[in-house]
């Protein structure tokens, strides 16, 4: 019991310390102290196997994992102690005190009878005895923990894994265009807009190339499939007709054609009349 009375205050103090230290690393160290003390207590309670496991698994593996994550997250991060949720801290403390007092009082009041002790159970060695039980009575639970551990490992892998993305730069895109041009002759520049050089900028009128032929790539494939593409030269003629009907002054370059067709459009024949009225 001497060990207990020495260790118990240490454990309580370390546990309380976890509540009050500002840095997570300090908390981890306090927890480590708690775990090791607990391991010693296991020894006094005739559980040598758990003593070993506690030290190896908890202090060795789990706390190291904690520290490792702390390194990733940032060792220096200190936590603000200003409570943001209203009433959370006070209620927590009250609940904690009442719960702790109740449990302690109850645990202190009950009488458990004489302690049987584990001499008999551990007669063939603690580890052998545990193995006997574990692989007989608890074997299914033991197998289930195997599944649990594998699932946990996979889950951790999936959660922690980060896909590596290749960043696309202007340079690489430009290189790719040039490579495409070299290999398949694909036009490296932007497509001509419809209506360029065609004197008509409707989306269904193809652009004209410098030699006067329509540029098929300036028209949407959908319009071609529908067959609603119009002829650019024909549109050019109609533009002059519209201009005449609107009574705009003819540009010198098209004056000839407008004189030819002056007499056969109704709008044009109406013009003299209006002029006469004005006079």
């Amino acid at each position: 019991m001497i060990a207990f009375w020495i260790l118990a205050p240490i454990m309580v103090v370390s546990a309380l310390g976890v509540l009050f230290v500002r840095k997570a690393v300090h908390a981890a160290l306090l927890v480590a102290a708690l775990m090791i003390s607990l391991a010693v207590l296991y020894l006094t309670l005739e559980a040598p196997f758990l003593f070993v496991v506690q030290i190896i698994v908890y202090t060795g593996a789990i706390l190291m994992l904690f520290l490792f994550v702390l390194m990733l997250v940032g060792v220096d991060t200190t936590e603000s102690f200003v409570e943001t949720i209203r009433g959370q801290r006070a209620t927590s403390i009250v609940f904690g005190l009442v719960l702790g007092l109740t449990l302690v009082l109850v645990a202190g009041q009950i009488t458990l009878g004489t302690v049987v002790g584990l001499e008999e159970a551990n007669s063939g060695g603690n580890i052998e005895a545990l193995a006997n039980i574990l692989f007989s009575r608890w074997v299914f639970a033991f197998e289930a923990t195997a599944a649990l551990l594998i699932t946990a490992a996979l889950g951790a892998l999936v959660l922690a894994h980060q896909e590596k993305t290749v960043k696309v730069t202007q340079r690489s895109l430009s290189d790719q265009r040039m490579r495409d041009y070299a290999e398949s002759g694909k036009h490296p520049g932007p497509l001509p807009a419809p209506g360029v050089y065609a004197r008509h900028n409707a989306v269904d009128t193809p652009a004209l190339l410098p030699d006067g032929t329509p540029a098929p790539s300036s028209i949407s494939r959908v319009l071609v499939a529908r067959g609603t593409v119009r002829s650019a030269p024909a549109e050019a003629d109609r533009v002059e007709k519209f201009a005449r009907e609107l009574g705009e002054p003819q540009r010198p370059s098209t004056a000839e054609s407008s004189m030819e067709s002056n007499s056969d459009t109704p709008a044009a024949s109406a013009e003299p009349g209006t002029e006469g009225e004005q006079a």
Binding site: I85, Q88, T91, S92, F95, G96, V98, L99, T102, L103
Partner: peptide, 18 residues
């Protein structure tokens, strides 16, 4: 807030114990 929910759970535990 997870802590708020945890508080409710502790409150429930307390009730059961009492």
């Amino acid at each position: 807030y997870v802590r708020s929910y945890a508080l409710s759970i502790v409150g429930g535990v307390l009730l059961v114990v009492l």
